[in-house]
Amino acid sequence: MSLAIEVHDLVKRFGSRTVVDHLSLSLEQGRVCGFVGPNGSGKTTSLRMICGLLTPDGGGGTCLGHDLLREREAIKRQIGYMTQRFGLYEDLTIRENLEFIGRIYGLDRLHGRIDDALERLNLATRQSQRTGSLSGGWKQRLALAACLLHEPKLLLLDEPTAGVDPRARRAFWDEIHDLAAHGMTVLVSTHYMDEAERCHELAYLAYGELLAHGAAAEIVSRSGLHAFVALGGGLDHLATSLRGVQGINAAAFGATLHVSSADPIALEEAIAPFRHDPALRWHEVQPTLEDVFIHLMGDARDNAADG
């Protein structure tokens, strides 16, 4: 399998702040990789460096076999980049926007391609509508259609589903997998755990550093995290008292409480006083991806504080 993305030691600084710190990442063709991590962790900056919008301060690599620093033109022609903010012109109509993008890429059969895209989007009847009047979900689908118009080999999507309703998000992800099935490589940043779980692999970035990379299950099993779930009443109160304990994470999900820690003994000790509470039922469970991410985030913050 050839690598769609192969970057090593990418560094980006804004002034004295290091936003991306020696990021190395390889992504095979046809894979969907989720880029996850807290706000300000350098996801957007990394995506911008990979697509040639930002010049790295250090490191290098290739994108679709083209050098990141020297062959930006070639990279730009073969990737589709969907910006976090809606990047099309709101004052133009839907069709005018697609025509603009098509002309920029110098596409042949422009008319036919746009008709096809509009048909797929179900926007054929609204093609003369101002783009600004579309809802968030439609804008996002249109933006995706626009960056697929020139049939790129790699898609870079920066939080494409922020503020989009669950149904539209599901449809969006179905399309992503459909594209991947046809050989498209996708690197997509997200904050949603359900979306992260739909990715073939995940790259977890915090404070500019890549902390974990692999399939969701691998990341969970490698985390060394232990978790218990409590069911019953008074969970909110219990969550508050457990959260005070060093090294313990507790989060209430409706009628259940998730308690996790990297230290199994500390975890047992922390929940021991409540273990025999008749109002509660306890189970040992696999930690969730969210448990792992929150755990990783806490570690990274500790490191940052130490440094």
Partner: peptide, 11 residues
């Protein structure tokens, strides 16, 4: 408006 980022990502 953020459209420049989109434009710069094109050729």
């Amino acid at each position: 408006l953020g459209t420049m980022e989109n434009l710069l990502a094109t050729p």
